[in-house]
Design a protein around this nucleic acid. Structure first.
Lengths: 246, 246
DNA sequence: CTTTACCGGTTCAAATAGTGCACCATTGGG
DNA sequence: CCCAATGGTGCACTATTTGAACCGGTAAAG
């Protein structure tokens, strides 16, 4: 189904950073011919997944996604449950929390909560969390099936900081360790001075849906702090799994 | 792009009423061959728009929609603005309000608000509002372009109550009247004892995005009541249009 | 006031991708 | 135990998608 692949690949080009894209630009970004791109856009538009700005002639996502997101949320109420989990965990730990789901290129934030204090780790919800450099991404990788893992790790591993692991073998080694201990820890691998503890949440054993993570200023993540945070993260994940199972 | 059409047509089969659908059932519903259906589903699943229940083997919408709905909402914040408009209008009028967007087969509710009193018109948010039988649907039809109108009215016109107009010519005649006066009024055409006043909200002149409607117990919609409600509906729509234009 | 270089959009012969029947292996009533 | 469903697949046949080259228009550069 190469044609469908291409159409959906077009949709993947849109993001909070690229809300509206012109025909030529979109064709270039997706690596497709202009004519093909246009045909695909017309088909997508027919079903409300794409619309074209009348003045700029640029394309943007259509309202079709609102309806289907509602249906999806009625089917598996993750977003709602995730927000509850985030709020609870942030209140318990007094740290920044975020929950994310896997998409191509990284994990996307679906819920987050900042604690009530002055110095906190901020979160940019639109930013994709790379798989190899974040506690959330690694948590997902560690527990997903090997085929998915290999495909997600197939691209080049960018170094976000000096501490980012860019060697595939080293990452895979870490993943084994993480899988054994049931959670992930990263220190300054995505942003300097930020450490994180991550844990996947599963729909059923061996099938991770997404990941939860607590982000802490690097200096504050002592062994004692980590030991204190872990059970709380575990409890939040357990309750979330309960809620999305039904 | 017939292939893309078919793939998207599959997605249209899913609704709050049909959250999970088996392969054969889905093929039947969409009027496609089983093999073709499966190939399309696999392609959709690859991009996170479909997932398969491991136990029942049935298919359901994937999490891809959550992400893209977020992007869409960041692009054109209709849902948020619509909810504000619904809340304001319900408070002003002390009546039930709902805002909806056009999709295949009817208008889908994106925001609604019930007033603070005992006897109210209830709303089932997942229910599609048929174009020819509701104030919202007619409001959209009256102001959209003729080609869209014809295609939306092309199917058989079901009689929901004794008062539902099922003659295409009669509906078109009403639409002309509605377009002239700028709003729609329906009396018991979708549910008995419910009257509604509807109005489209436009992205730009001649381009309706969706519709707002006030639902009132039929006996209460006197001429005086209608005259009182109309300016409030107008104001709510005007403010909503302001907010979604930027 | 050209010239150049984009842009969105369209065309049609050539190449490729999608089709759907017939066929499994399972599952669950009657 | 059988029949009628289900989900899933292989393959000869055929319809669809492709993309270089092409418009006409606009905007900045010479």
């Amino acid at each position: 189904m190469k044609t469908v692949d291409k159409a959906l690949h077009l949709l993947d080009q849109f993001s909070v950073e690229h809300k509206e894209i012109g025909l030529s630009a979109l064709a270039r970004m997706a690596g497709l011919d202009k004519a093909a791109t246009r045909r695909l856009l017309v088909a997508l538009a027919k079903h409300g997944f794409i619309e074209q700005s009348a003045e700029t002639k640029k394309y943007r996502l259509g309202h079709g996604f609102l309806r289907l997101a509602r249906v999806r949320e009625a089917t598996v109420p993750v977003t709602q449950a995730a927000q509850q989990a985030a709020d609870w965990l942030a209140a318990q730990t007094n740290e920044t929390v975020h929950l994310s789901l896997p998409v191509a290129g990284g994990m996307t934030t679906i819920a987050h909560c900042l604690p009530n204090r002055a110095r906190v780790i901020n979160i940019i919800p639109s930013e994709l969390l790379p798989y190899h450099a974040t506690a959330s991404g690694l948590a997902y990788l560690a527990f997903c099936d090997p085929a998915t893992r290999n495909s997600l790790l197939s691209g080049p591993l960018r170094a976000y900081t000096e501490k980012t692991l860019t060697d595939r073998q080293a990452v895979l080694g870490d993943l084994d360790r993480f899988r054994a201990q049931g959670y992930t820890v990263t220190r300054n691998t995505f942003e300097d001075d930020v450490s994180s503890i991550g844990m996947p949440f599963l729909q059923r054993p061996g099938r991770p849906t997404g990941a939860a993570a607590i982000a802490v200023p690097a200096a504050e993540l002592t062994q004692a702090r980590q030991d204190a945070l872990l059970p709380q993260l575990q409890q939040a994940v357990a309750e979330l799994e309960q809620r999305i199972a039904g």
